[in-house]
Amino acid sequence: MSGLGRRKIVNIVAMSLASACAAAGLFLLLVILYDVLVEGAGSLRLRLFTQDPAPPNIPGAGGLRGAFLGQGLLTLAASVVGVPVGVLGGTFLAEYGRHYKICRLISALSDMAVSIPSIVIGTFVYAVLVKPMGGFNGWAGAAALAVIILPVVLRTTEEMMTMVPWSLREAAFALGAPYCKVITSVVWRSAMSGIFTGVLLAVARVAGETAPLLFTSFNSNFFQLGLNRATPSLTVSIYQYAASPYETWVETAWAAAFVVTFLVLLLNVAGRIFIKIKKVG
């Protein structure tokens, strides 16, 4: 009887603690979102998307169109490299390489790579790409983002494919399918929604990264189609504008922050909705 009472009390205490922590986290998140929403939406103007940056303290002028384009190009280039390499690498780890020790090691290292601070990746790419190439450029920025995407996509793919039961593969083998066919037509298909979600979350993550870009693509006030020179990005622009003493720049930073937050949120929500639909359907 007293044992039961004790367990009930422990249960209540544990539950209250967990709830309090969850509430604290949620509270902070809501405060941030509220701030970004109120300040950002208030400063949002159409010229943000259509004009080039203006000198400080000229009210009613200046936008970040170059940064929008640059962000898009950087994210796209990073995804074009990081996603296929990650998916194919993860496939190798889950299938052909599953019995090799070296592959288990690669999985473990990728897990670590997921949690490397992104600024470290930025400085690494600075050393191997920016310095030898003689200056900041968009390709280096894209490379840094790709390095962040790669282990996330690799591990998600591997895990999602490992979850597909062997009985399904056996059924395909039993029909005379070669291994590559079993993978592409049965395993990938079963793991597709999980892999797709992982890709979406990885892309969403790099779309909001600043640190790896500071040492690689840096920033630029010029509108340009291409990644050969220093390339503007929203996140780095926000970082620089927000830290400036000029009111017009701080306002622009808020507006840009609003747009970035909203886009990343959208990608995340899209990813999650996609899992739901796939599970139900």
């Binding site: 009985s167 399904l168 056996e170 059924a171 395909a172 039993a174 029909l175 037509s185 049965v186 298909r189 079963s190």
Partner: peptide, 11 residues
């Protein structure tokens, strides 16, 4: 050909 214990429809 082989038929297993549990049905194995492909997705």
């Amino acid at each position: 050909g082989m038929v297993f214990q549990k049905p194995t429809p492909f997705p």
